[in-house]
Design a protein around this nucleic acid. Structure first.
Lengths: 165, 165
DNA sequence: GAATAAAATGGATTATAATGGAATATATTG
DNA sequence: CAATATATTCCATTATAATCCATTTTATTC
């Protein structure tokens, strides 16, 4: 079954909350009972992951916590995870409060238009304008990659001859 | 479960105390009953660790006590832990007094705006302005890293050619 | 060593913000 | 077009944060 996909446009209420679409609510309830982790992304948006998904992501980066604190570098790593992530709850009405501290960087202040974007392992919340820009950037990148692939296909003829076709 | 994470903005009261957020209070009570160690960080902030976390960090530096007095390096390590750390208590109202001696270096004088920052193994208390700078530095670094990864994705096409066709 | 002054502590009060629920408006479906 | 479902707004309640004040402790001075 396909989870956490599609996009929905909606707005942030006066208290800094978003109401999720029924599909996303269902996805989160089934996956984690509504216990999620909000993560502030450097590209200017926030991600919402089921708690265990976040734990997995976090663990893959490593860094046994207690050894840290000794070096400036390790403290910065801890900060970048600790400060930029925090637990949250999807209420029984399907609402989610965006943490105060993350609103500025993501431009998600009360009243703004946003997109809820499915990213397969969770969702992301984007300022509407920014999301439209991001979509464009993604497209540009994919097109560039496509061009490079076509070029590589041609140059392969010189180097190896044709295998596949 | 996720502990010691997120950020909260608040201010230092007239007597040099901060009131922790309920989440941090809970984290400390569960972890150590409110017995913490304050450590003055060279980057200009103070860290608050549960006592046992601090002990572990301290232990990982080595059995300095026996070797003490033998080398300048050892003596300096002892000093940096001895002089720059001291025990403290989170009161039953969730307040924490910032030791006089550490207020200057961290710019945490009575009346100033601060951030309480979760760092997974404890929290850090930052002067608000300084923290905003630090966050920006962290974000810039993460963004740069991201850009490099995107570039690598493109150049991978050249190296591998097309496999699929 | 006693008295005074300064500071620190703990509690309580007030103001502000977050929360949950319900009602209304809008969109979607049959 | 009617009925249902979903989104948005509003309001009452609760929780939280900041402020103030009385008490205790510590330091200083005579």
């Amino acid at each position: 079954m396909l989870r956490f996909c599609g996009q929905e446009k909606c707005s942030i209420d006066a208290n800094g909350r978003v109401k999720l679409s029924p599909r996303f609510i269902e996805d989160f309830l089934q996956r984690c009972g509504g216990d999620v982790v909000i993560h502030s992304l450097p590209e200017g948006a926030v991600a919402v992951y089921p708690e265990d998904v976040y734990q997995q992501m976090r663990a893959s980066v490593g860094q046994a916590a207690e050894k840290a604190g000794l070096s400036l570098v390790q403290r910065r790593i801890l900060r970048s995870f600790g400060a930029l992530s925090q637990p949250d709850q999807i209420t029984r009405q399907g609402r989610l409060t965006i943490p105060q501290a993350y609103r500025g960087n993501a431009e998600l202040l009360p009243g703004t238009e946003v997109y809820l974007v499915g990213v397969e392992i969770g969702i992301e919340i984007w300022n509407a304008q920014r999301w439209e820009q991001e979509l464009q950037d993604i497209n540009t990148h994919l097109l560039q990659k496509g061009e490079l692939e076509m070029a590589a296909d041609l140059s392969a003829v010189n180097n190896e001859g044709i295998k596949g076709i």
